[in-house]
Design a protein around this nucleic acid. Structure first.
Lengths: 226, 226
DNA sequence: TCCGGTTATTTGTTATAACAAGTATATCGG
DNA sequence: CCGATATACTTGTTATAACAAATAACCGGA
């Protein structure tokens, strides 16, 4: 077994069209670019991304299988709408899984990682002050998943990602109000402090509160809208 | 709005071919009919179920999106092989999520439900004595998911299902040894007792041990094989 | 103006064909 | 008999066409 060969190993495996479409949709979802309940017609996304029906359908159906998109009885695919019950269910799942990921991450985080996390947090504060919400959302994603990645639990991370995606279309519902009272920022600071102190308990509490607060915000907004 | 019409509502929405193929594959996976690492060629499953490539590919890709199947760089789809790290990761996820589902279920379980669960447990004991493993596996699935269903947390249940499916191909690796020392049966009895007593703590412990034991068995078997 | 039905169009579903890249087989030279 | 090259075959990927069902548009009559 040649160690020289292993170092070249990865190979530039080309991405398939279906995968590219799926990733495009994921990114759009995560950026909150779709409205809750918005329909995603197969031919529409195929035309928008200039591919045929086959990869477009594949991407949409994969996201459905993940639970990120839904379809009604007639096969129309749309971005799911969340009610209070669903948000609360997602909240409980997320608290459980993200605390696990964070706790595990704490044992693996290098000083390098921690430095990166603190920098992202700083950038979040700046984006909050300048009220650049789309940047804020992206940084917030990076902040959390940089931590979770360190858990080295790929299946867990994937499930957490699905949960985030399910809430994706509601993110721009809460973000304009996120920094209003400084609570969101405060919680991130607590997360950072707990990481630096390597305090698992405090980290869990901060993460749980961060999730709970975001979900409460969502619930308030959707019940206000009705 | 006519109340008479509402009572007929549901409508027999016909299943699509892709969905049927996916469910067939899920069932086969859950029954442990596939070997770990076994390849699933698109044309092969299409021919086996007498459908065209399109629905076969759809089903396989949906299961991939769920993380239940995997593909290598060249696109060949296969049943994933688990190593110790993966089993341990799945174990931790499962303990966390299934305890949550069970705890929540405890608040909703009717006497009817409990009766059904006790009956399933009885059937499991019988199937164990007669060493009907495939029946045992199916009953074991029913036992756990009858409990989890009562949580009324559909997204949670779906995630748990995915986790079970990921271990599916290893089930017949452990089941021939399951009842050997009576521990598996004992744990189910403890689950039942905790449910009857409505004791959340005892229920969590029993479920966690049940999962842990099954995973330990798997780890033993696969490390013995290597 | 509103209602009924009819037509047209859109939409999801499935099969098939064409292509490319990988894998197996066979053939030939040493 | 072994190994390398060429050939045939298998496999995943994608586009397209055909079908059916659902939705939208339309239009004439009350």
């Amino acid at each position: 077994m040649s160690s020289a060969l292993q170092s070249i190993a990865p190979i530039a495996r080309k991405e398939t069209l279906g995968t590219m479409v799926r990733e495009k949709l994921r990114a759009a979802l995560m950026a909150g670019r779709f409205q809750p309940g918005e329909k995603l017609a197969i031919r529409a996304v195929a035309a928008a991304l200039d591919v045929s029906l086959t990869p477009a359908r594949e991407a949409l159906y994969n996201l459905m299988a993940e639970g990120v998109l839904e379809a009604n009885a007639t096969g129309t695919i749309y971005v799911p709408e969340l009610d209070t019950a669903k948000i609360n269910e997602l909240r409980r799942i997320r608290v459980s899984l993200e605390c696990m990921a964070a706790t595990e991450a704490l044992q693996n985080l290098t000083d390098e990682d921690i430095k990166k996390i603190l920098e992202i947090n700083k950038a979040i504060c700046e984006a909050d002050h300048t009220r650049e919400f789309s940047k804020l959302m992206e940084l917030n994603w990076m902040f959390h998943f940089t931590i979770y990645e360190a858990s080295k639990m790929p299946m867990l991370i994937r499930i957490i990602e699905s949960c985030w995606l399910k809430m994706g279309s509601y993110l721009n519902v809460i973000y304009p109000y996120y920094g209003e009272d400084g609570k969101g920022i405060d919680l991130h600071d607590r997360v950072c402090a707990a990481i630096v102190a390597r305090d698992a308990l405090a980290l869990n509490e901060a993460i749980a509160e961060d999730i709970t607060q975001a979900c409460d915000w969502m619930i308030n907004r959707i019940s206000a809208k009705t």
